[in-house]
Simulated assay, not measured.
Amino acid sequence: MAAIFPAVVYLLCFATSLLCAVLLGRSYRRSGARLLLWSTACFALLAVNNLFVIIDMLLIAWIDFRIVRLLLSLSAVSVLLFGFIWDLEDDA
C-alpha cells in the first residue's frame, strides 16, 4: 500500500500543473494579457517536468533523467521571470 503513494503523488502533481496550464491558456485566449501567456508556458514546462518525474521514478528507473528535469525546471522559471521583466519594461 505504501508503494502506491509516490505514484499517486507524482500523477497528482502532473495533473495539477497540466490543469493550471490549460486554465491559464484559456484565460489568456479570453483576455490577451501577456502575463497569462508566460504563466501558461511556465506551467506547461512544469507539467512536462512532472511527466519526466513519472518516467524517471516509476517507469524507466535505470536511466537518470535528473539533468533533463533540472533543465526543464530552470527553463520554466526562466520563462516566467522573462515574462515578468518584459512586462515591467513595457509598463515603464
Rank of each mutant, 00 (worst) to 15 (best):
L24D: 04
R66C: 11
R66V: 15
I63K: 06
L12M: 11
R26Q: 09
N49F: 09
L19H: 13
F52I: 03
A21S: 09
C42M: 10
L58T: 12
L18D: 00
G32Q: 02
A61K: 12
L23W: 10
A61L: 02
A21P: 00
G32L: 00
F43V: 01
G32H: 01
T16V: 10
L23P: 13
S31A: 08
G25N: 09
R34V: 06
F65N: 10
R66A: 15
C42E: 01
D56C: 10
L37Y: 06
D56Q: 03
L19P: 03
L46A: 12
S31E: 12
F43H: 04
L23N: 13
R26F: 01
G25M: 05
V22P: 00
R34A: 14
I54V: 09
R29E: 03
A41T: 03
D64E: 05
Y28R: 07
T40E: 08
I55H: 07
Y10A: 13
L35G: 08
S39H: 11
L19W: 06
W38Y: 15
L59V: 07
T40Q: 05
C20P: 01
L35F: 08
L46M: 12
I54C: 11
N49E: 10
F52W: 10
L51P: 09
F52T: 11
L37K: 12
C13P: 05
F14R: 07
S17N: 15
L18Q: 03
A33R: 15
L58K: 11
A21C: 05
D64C: 03
L37H: 06
A44Q: 02
A41Y: 02
A61Q: 12
L37M: 08
S17W: 00
A47I: 06
F65G: 11
L36W: 01
T16E: 06
Y10L: 13
C13E: 13
A47S: 15
A61W: 00
L59F: 10
T16P: 00
